[in-house]
Amino acid sequence: MSAERNLLFDLVSIASASYKEAEACDYLNARLPSLGWDKSYIDYVGNVVATKGEGDNEIILLGHIDTVEGGPKPKVEDDTLWGRGAVDAKGPLCAMAIAGGKVKLARNCKLTLIAAIGEESDSRGILYRLPLHKPKACIVGEPSNTRGITIGYRGCIRAILKAKDGGGHRSADAGPLTSVTLAASEILNRLRSNDQSGKSIAYSPSGAIVSMRGQERGRRTAKMELDIRVPIGGTLEEYRLLVEKICKKYKKYKVEYDIALAIPPHVTDKNNIVAKAFRTALRRQKLEPRVVVKSGTADFNHAAAWDCPMVAYGPGDSTLDHTMTEHIVLSEYLKSIDVLETAIVLISSYVSSGVGFL
């Protein structure tokens, strides 16, 4: 098995669910210097950070090393690697690690690889790194089927609906469990009614129940967490007000809400220099570029704070994210390394000299 395949198989074989990333981080940190990176270390919160080159023009390769729980047992069958994280997002992370280690940077350029922790939970890894960098360009490692150039993601609101009382008879007062369920149902139905039929799901809102809990033992309590996806073009305030308005309808039933998480949607210019570099790199590999926007939310949204040209790119089929059939085609993974290497060289040349490549 080649070094490229070994790196990915080994990393996928190390379980690294959010808050349990330490072993995988130690492994990657130890491997990066042998891949061509000048320096590698684990930062204060647990991210793996590697650098190459020196200069004022920083290019960031931002991936994440954490995964959700579960997944298929890691194994290789012919040209396919199975395992949690193969697609989301150790495949893209390893592709960036290999490609970044190979490239020859232009003068006055610095390349930084960040294997962030916590992307699947609270994004604590990228939030810690944000004030430490002022990059001229950023590539976010997320699956895009090798040919895709992702320029946007929906936002996310986590709303917690809750209610409680001192007790009552259900025949006269349905109680907190019922009132919270009705309020949540109305929110979800309203989101569905706003569906922009015929357009990409990224431009429509959606909602799902993350968890629900309640009991009736004298005192009655209910709590439900909703995952509301904010479409590209929408605002966090618009959807917070939707939750507030519906909860107010159930005020007499003591329904309240908290916002546990709020991440705005973000879309970049499809003609920014990073996107152009990937179009050129893909065509050099005889692949037809495809610009996409995604229905999920990622560290891409947080990286918008850097206000630099950016896209997300990587091998893997994102419809397999978080599933029990998660797998990646190894030949596509290897091809993405070639695409990334070319794109990084083009971006490096541009940020160093300001000379375009198209």
Rank of each mutant, 00 (worst) to 15 (best):
R190E: 11
S204T: 14
R213V: 09
V180H: 03
A184H: 00
S185W: 15
A184D: 02
L191G: 04
L188T: 00
K223A: 09
V210F: 12
A183Q: 03
G214P: 05
P205S: 09
L188A: 01
R190Q: 01
S193V: 00
S204D: 09
M224Y: 12
R213L: 13
E225A: 14
A208C: 06
N189W: 03
Q215I: 00
R190W: 00
G207Y: 01
E225V: 08
E225S: 13
E186W: 00
S211I: 08
P176C: 02
S185Y: 15
R219F: 14
E216A: 11
E186D: 10
R220M: 06
I187V: 15
S179K: 00
A184S: 11
K199P: 02
L177S: 11
T178Q: 10
R213W: 07
N194T: 01
L226N: 10
A202H: 10
R213H: 12
Q215Y: 02
R217A: 08
L177A: 14
R219G: 05
M212Y: 12
R190I: 00
S197I: 04
A208L: 11
R220T: 07
S211L: 10
E186I: 01
T181Y: 10
G218H: 02
R219V: 15
L226V: 12
D195E: 12
S179N: 00
A174M: 06
L226Q: 10
G175T: 09
S200V: 04
P205I: 05
A222P: 03
